[in-house]
């Protein structure tokens, strides 16, 4: 226990404190300490994007960041995407456009898509493909994923 470090951070708008070892990644802290298992481990070396989260507004592979680095940060995970008002338009669009099959990569794609729409609210197909290129999906062939993100952007634009 003496080797553990105390980290204070904001996760999905809520202040959280946890103890972790210096060698533990943000992904391990989220999954194994805070039990937020939405972010998935697909490769543990930053190549599949299944662990994508947003740290202080920046799209991040949680497997490639140490847990102690999020001291004082704001971390957004898939668990924080839906609000009291219901699903986020991205989640709704993924369901309606069948933008998921097995679902293991889905939380990562949702967070990458959110990071995109936070920056570029009405992206074109090319921009969507560019922002999703760090996430691997082996089931869909990307067609319905891209359509889901474009549909969510339309839904959000219509709402404004």
């Amino acid at each position: 226990m003496s080797n553990k470090l105390l980290v204070t951070t904001t996760v999905n708008g809520e202040q959280r404190e946890f103890l972790c070892e210096a060698r533990q990644s943000l992904l391990e802290a989220l999954r194994d300490i805070l039990y937020l298992t939405g972010a998935k481990e697909g490769c543990n070396d930053g190549n599949c994007g299944a662990c994508s989260v947003i740290v202080d507004g920046v799209l991040t592979n949680a497997c490639c960041m140490l847990a102690v680095e999020v001291e004082g940060s704001h971390v957004e995970t898939v668990e924080g995407l839906a609000s009291g008002a219901g699903l986020h338009p991205l989640q709704q669009a993924f369901l309606e456009e069948t933008g998921l099959q097995c679902g293991i990569c889905t939380p990562g794609f949702l967070m990458s898509a959110k990071a995109l729409l936070d920056k570029i609210p009405t992206p074109d197909e090319r921009q969507v493909r560019h922002w999703l290129a760090g996430n691997l999906c082996r089931c869909t062939g990307y067609d319905k994923l891209v359509r889901s993100v474009l549909k969510a952007a339309d839904a959000m634009a219509a709402r404004l």
Partner: peptide, 19 residues
């Protein structure tokens, strides 16, 4: 139709083997 198990998969609640 929408698939019921999809809801848990877009909210991060679905229980995969590593969870």
């Amino acid at each position: 139709p929408l698939r019921p198990d999809g809801l848990d998969k877009v909210t991060g609640r679905a229980q995969f083997a590593d969870d």
